[in-house]
Design a protein around this nucleic acid. Structure first.
Lengths: 230, 230
DNA sequence: CAGCATTTTGCTCATTGTGCTCAGGGTGAG
DNA sequence: CTCACCCTGAGCACAATGAGCAAAATGCTG
């Protein structure tokens, strides 16, 4: 059971979140606190595995409390889901820098929370099963922790010979090329070219621009980034 | 420039990593250290934005140094890429829990490092541009930081490139623009522009105002929500 | 105030390209 | 030899677009 502690100033909201967490298999709520001071004491005493932390607390900013929790000894580390209505980028950045396992923007549904709790739990279960962790494993775990789709940056990387061929082909021209043009040039199918070109855009290896002008879907055109020299 | 500090016990490997980083636009290497003690002193003095941290150091485990760095005051936070041959899941878990912006398994290529550095840089640039961060934004940034595909778990959040182009186009001006003006500016049809502009108003992404003055229907004019006047 | 001309919007439908699934083949490990 | 996994291509569903038209909204005139 992942023992979960809830830190939220509003009693009713705390109850709602508690009910949400209790419904997720494998998670149990072991306590709640409504101020930073009370939360800190309780966390020291109860040693939860996971904390849901609201940033707005009456006696201290949630990020200050988070920083304090991060200073506990290594064996006592607690995972923290930041739960906040704060939508300024500085809060998000600082929470991630402090190591938030997730940052959930209020309001959210029970399903949304459950999805992320389950993803988080599975991430570490999967990691714990491995003795020889690869880069793809790391990325998968990190992605699951952060609420991303699992695919790693390593797939579609330059190691794949088809990706390399596409990259090379596009490097030869300053024009943007369509998937069909790349496919024809390399002798591969349009679907394969499209698959990889799309992945390479996702990985910021290529720049996508659309060619409009006719009925029907616009043509995706792919172009090298200007600075990909070495 | 993102000022980067390299912590690596092996001199030659430190030089290789330094050369890798120097090749990435927007990044500069401001120093290197080969022990935890020297690293800590240097980091306090130089105040880098980013640290590449190898876990095997002769005088202290890299994660202990990392934990120390995390205890710096909030205004002095440094992002840390953990770079390690350690493939045990405990190291990975602890590094992520401490807030590692990335965990890169040795050995890796220059391209792999460059991809992740660029993704990391863009993640925060993108975040910094936003004043009203959504859950999808958070997930996107966290994903980019952690080496994942950019798509968020939040369904339906994948970007429509035409919507994005419209948003970007409108962001460039303080004027309200009509559908025809947007269409002409982007090289898309008036109907397509109208369709999306209307949706964006519905989704509160844009503000609608009507321009009267002639016979015929009034012109819908669309404006960004940003309150750019002080 | 009604009617009309004008202008723009909103919507439908045909078209076109993308994204995705599935089957087949190849390769490597056991 | 078998099985699992990955890559690829074929093909299909559907997403996205533009053309064009009906209708809505406005201002002007009688």
């Amino acid at each position: 059971m992942i023992r979960t502690f809830i830190i939220e100033d509003d009693f009713r909201v705390a109850d709602i979140h508690s009910a949400y967490v209790s419904k997720v298999p494998g998670f149990e709520v072991i306590g709640k606190a409504h101020t930073a001071a009370a939360a800190y004491e309780a966390v020291l005493e109860l040693q939860p595995d996971l904390v849901l932390l609201d940033l707005y607390l009456p006696d201290q900013h949630g990020l200050e409390l988070f920083a304090k929790l991060q200073q506990l000894p290594r064996g006592q580390k607690i995972d923290v889901f930041v739960i906040s209505a704060a939508r300024d980028s500085a809060s998000v950045k600082e929470a991630l820098q402090l190591g938030a396992a997730n940052y959930i923007v209020k309001p959210f549904s029970q399903v949304q929370l459950a999805d992320r709790l389950i993803a988080y739990k599975e991430a570490f279960q999967r990691l714990a099963e491995k003795t020889d962790v690869s880069q793809a494993d790391v990325d998968r775990v990190a992605a699951l922790m952060r609420g991303s789709k699992v695919e790693s940056m390593e797939t579609g990387s330059a190691k794949n010979p088809t990706v390399e061929a596409i990259r090379t082909y596009l490097a030869k021209t300053t024009d943007a090329l369509s998937a069909s043009e790349v496919a024809e040039g390399l002798g591969i199918s349009r679907a394969t070219a499209q698959r990889y070109l799309s992945q390479m855009v996702d990985r910021k290896l290529l720049h996508l621009e659309l060619q409009y002008g006719t009925a029907g879907r616009p043509i995706n055109k792919y172009r090298n980034h200007r600075h990909s020299s070495i």
